[in-house]
Design a protein around this nucleic acid. Structure first.
Lengths: 334, 334
DNA sequence: CTGAAAGCGCTAACAG
DNA sequence: CTGTTAGCGCTTTCAG
């Protein structure tokens, strides 16, 4: 491996000079610069990033921790982040937080110990106090999909309530009055917030979300099936379901068909997230598009600016909105 | 940030000693070790991995490059790799290869320049000669889903032909005689190999794959739809389709239903990969399970052993098999 | 505009 | 068993 020092020797200049031309810094004599460049080319010199990191205390890597990278939502998140990282000249290192006990914390600490100052965290477990403490230590720690008031300028999140209001309002505009909700038992507050959203939207239309039209289960396909079964067995009438996410929505569709009901003819189903699967199922799912990839890219840029421009003050709000994408799972009753 | 040197000073020992207890190496006096440990604990010392890497030329990171992390198949791959990386004490850094021109190569080189010696590559574009050259330079470069004879000991791949033979044989055992294939125009040789697999299986049963029952398109849902439309317009009769992958299979199912045909009653559809979507569509997809997560973990372990035990000779074959998972998209005609 | 020199934080012979 | 001493490859004052 050819080093900077060797280049310097061959070129008959000092290492400082070579370093300068490599990072095209400052004033280096034009001819001198040319010569060094030529030699670098000839001998195929490539800078050693590790050494650079050590010398200038940079890290050139940004970290991302999500519960489980193999889930579509999180892989989109990672993808957005990878793209932004690369554009900023950083490497993206990732960790799943799911498989270990103190998983999230361990992941973050491990990242920090690898000198990466910018970390994108999709936190599910840790409590706010812990996170606040960590944030002090790690200047580039940003939170995605979690709002912590004390750390507002580090939080990139979605207006869940507005989103589910939009969704509900849409259903109502299509003539639905008896709306059911299938939601999830989840670590964070998203499910509750979304249920609130439908309640508010219904209230605004002088409607009411009936307690036995709320079914709770796990946030996946099986959960969706279970929830719908519960709904069905309650004998309460409903013409539409707003689901916590696409997976539950798809489970719901399955359960509905299995019960001899047609979607959307007999009951409409509205999803959340707009994962790829929402175009794979039949009928294709009408759903709220979660701009997770954009959010991840945004969060990544924020994370690098947070460490590179520490003096700067950043605007306090990084709030995104979901938007409705109409496909085939909602019927027009009007 | 407290350094090893400071710990040494406080403990009244040399940095070498501290280094030894940190890496619990060699023989250090028991009391001495205890004392140092206590101090490390007290002052909250944490080793600097960058410095360590520079000093001992290790890298503690392994790289992975796939075309597009947001695709289910690749995110499973990444996930398997992340898990294995972590177990080996490495960080996983990833790169998409899709967005740039000389994308793959750039990604690998960038990884290499960041001193990561172990790289898992899902190569789509690069030619063999280039790869062989790279392999010489990077001891831990392993290829996933690509077989390069000269680099057999670095290739972790799937027996595509056997897999599609299995698939076809299954269809035949279910009474299907008129089998169609929808395949993909793709960078690598997989599609062709899989088509061969069905041809062989059919031949073994004195059947023949009719040329106009082979439709080619892109390897996604839209491609599947298109391919089926082509098949349908050929007027050639068929009772089953083997698809290049799950996405095409699902597209096929859509197109079939749109044409008024029922799956599996009128025509059966068999997928490949066993992605999550295969359980989201209706009917649920019978498909060949591609053990990509296991393969990725295996490849990752191989990659680290390749650099850590260079003297060792590794067995030449890292060949995996796909297995059939029966769901609801294939009818029994017999 | 360019060079000398002192590190960044840690490891690894080599002595003792 | 423990300390001394060079570095790893690059950056960065500080002189000149």
């Amino acid at each position: 491996m050819v080093t900077l020092k060797e280049v310097a020797k061959i070129a008959g200049v000092s290492t400082a000079t070579v370093s300068r031309v490599v990072n095209d810094q400052a004033k280096v004599g034009k001819k001198c610069r040319e010569r060094v460049k030529k030699i670098i080319e000839e001998v195929g010199y490539r800078p050693n990033f590790i050494a650079k990191s050590l010398a200038d205390k940079s890290s050139n890597t940004i970290g991302i921790v999500t519960p489980n990278l193999s889930m579509s939502f999180f892989s989109s998140l990672a993808c957005g982040s990878e793209h932004a990282s690369r554009e900023n000249g950083y490497s993206l290192v990732m960790r799943n937080s799911l498989y270990e006990t103190r998983s999230e914390l361990d992941a973050i600490k491990s990242l920090r110990d690898h000198n990466c100052q910018s970390i994108i965290l999709h936190s599910e477990y840790s409590d706010e106090q812990m996170l606040i403490k960590l944030a002090k230590e790690i200047p580039g720690l940003v939170f995605i999909n979690r709002f912590i008031p004390e750390l507002a300028e580090r939080c990139v999140w979605l207006d869940n309530q507005a989103a589910s209001q939009t969704a509900t309002q849409y259903l109502i505009s299509k003539g639905h009055r008896d709306i059911a909700v299938i939601t999830s038992v989840y670590q964070n507050r998203d499910p509750a917030t979304r249920v609130q959203g439908v309640q508010v939207a219904m209230m605004q239309n002088s409607l009411k979300l009936k307690p036995n039209l709320i079914a709770e289960s796990t946030a996946n396909m099986e959960g969706g099936e279970q929830a719908v079964k519960a709904l069905l067995s309650s004998k309460e009438k409903f013409t539409a379901i707003v689901a916590y996410n696409d997976l539950m929505a798809i489970g719901a569709i399955h359960a509905l068909f299995d019960a001899g009901l047609n979607v959307p003819k007999d009951v409409s189903v509205l999803g959340f997230d707009d994962l790829d699967v929402s175009r794979a199922c039949r009928p294709k799912l009408t759903t709220m598009h979660y701009p997770i990839e954009e959010m991840a890219a945004y969060a990544t840029n924020l994370a690098v600016r947070l460490v590179n421009e520490p003096e700067k003050n950043f605007s306090n709000t990084h709030l995104f909105m979901a938007n409705l994408v109409e496909r085939d799972s909602v019927a027009d009753l009007s």
